[in-house]
Design a protein around this nucleic acid. Structure first.
Lengths: 206, 206
DNA sequence: TTTACTTTCAAACAAGCGTTTGATATCTTG
DNA sequence: CAAGATATCAAACGCTTGTTTGAAAGTAAA
């Protein structure tokens, strides 16, 4: 009947949003319920009331709609395989490096990799495995010939590894180059580099 | 006069060795002093007595001799640039993925990247920055022509990103392929793939 | 053996953690 | 409005953390 959120729903929303921030910044272990509640302007007990536990909040926070949408968009395109790979890498990097974005799932995923929490299983099944399969199909299309599964997998790793490096190693890159800043132009240049680096390798397979 | 270690020195040694293990497994934040002392068969107070604090123990544990030795060995070789890059990637991956190795620094470095502790500055200055410079020189040699600094840097990132992916994403890869195991043959195959993937990209620059 | 110094130890400390509680406030509904 | 369900709150709980303490044990030299 009512489109507006109840007071309770608003608190839930604020908690989820704050949790996204804090989990992304400090990881699951490093994040504290108190910090999340402080940012959400809620009581310490709110997390347990609305989500049962800190873990419950985590799995509420995890959703991969944007990542899935990105794959669908790429698959729907009728561009050449090479162009689709370029497009995917660009959008993926924009998602990964967007600094003040609404979807911080990727930062959280990156954190999970380094320090898996019980939520990692869900992440792998729902987001990462499909992503790998999607990229595997794309790689095979670009290569344009039969490939051994292990080789397809390794090419996927090579592409993903390049992309994730910029996120995983951000603290280090920042220290080596303090003026480092990812604006849209920079991100697109990075994406272009990764595509330019990867495509010759895939073409060499032919 | 005496070559043997005093009782105190032995305790120090055991603490350092245990700390390497625990820091590598759980990261700095996740590791607990009690766990380290338990594995070292020492009292909880031992860490603070011998190293002042948990952070003191961390910086005692960090040394990068093996990583440095690896760079020197590569630079001393008189093989072709391409061969030297292949060699470096192989040795680097052997170091990264060696499962029961004595040098767990790399695991710790990988953890630092995801969740920087105050020791990260030391790691960057002493190990990572020199590594990037070393790889930058190698990339320029392989490319064999003038390159813009930004492009050199990105190629270094592409190579390192591929290598580090196998370590950083290990928990995920393990979940997607439970039988995954890095023996020497597998590691060498991975290294070969990374070189085969990267060299066409670098040659394409010519 | 006595003396001075170093190292170990069990115990405790203060602080922070996730979570629970029971009272209070705020809504919703009859 | 009144009654019942729902949401918020300050406070506390039980536990773990890194660190400190002061006594006990060990070591080395005179």
């Amino acid at each position: 009947m009512m489109d507006e959120l109840s007071a309770s729903d608003k608190t839930r929303e604020r908690l989820v949003e704050a949790a996204r921030e804090v989990f992304a910044e400090h990881g699951f272990q490093g994040a504290t319920v108190r910090e999340i509640c402080r940012r959400a302007d809620a009581n310490v007990a709110a997390v347990n009331y609305h989500f049962g536990s800190k873990h419950g909040l985590l799995s509420e926070v995890l959703n991969f709609n944007r990542l899935k949408a990105l794959q669908s968009a790429t698959e729907a395109s009728d561009a050449s395989p090479e162009e689709r790979l370029r497009l995917f890498i660009k959008d993926f990097m924009l998602m990964l490096l967007d600094e003040n974005n609404a979807s911080r799932q990727c930062q959280m995923m990156a954190r999970e990799l380094a320090d898996p929490s019980p939520a990692l299983d869900k992440i792998v099944i729902e987001a990462i495995a499909p992503l790998h399969e999607f990229l595997g199909r794309l790689v095979k299309e670009v290569a344009g010939r039969k490939m051994r599964d292990a080789d397809v997998r390794r090419c996927v790793y090579s592409i993903l590894g390049q992309c994730l490096f910029y996120r995983n190693s951000h603290p280090v890159l920042q220290r080596m180059n303090p003026t480092l800043h990812y604006d849209r132009k920079e991100i697109e240049a990075i994406a272009r580099h990764i595509a330019d680096f990867s495509l010759p390798a895939l073409r060499a397979l032919k």
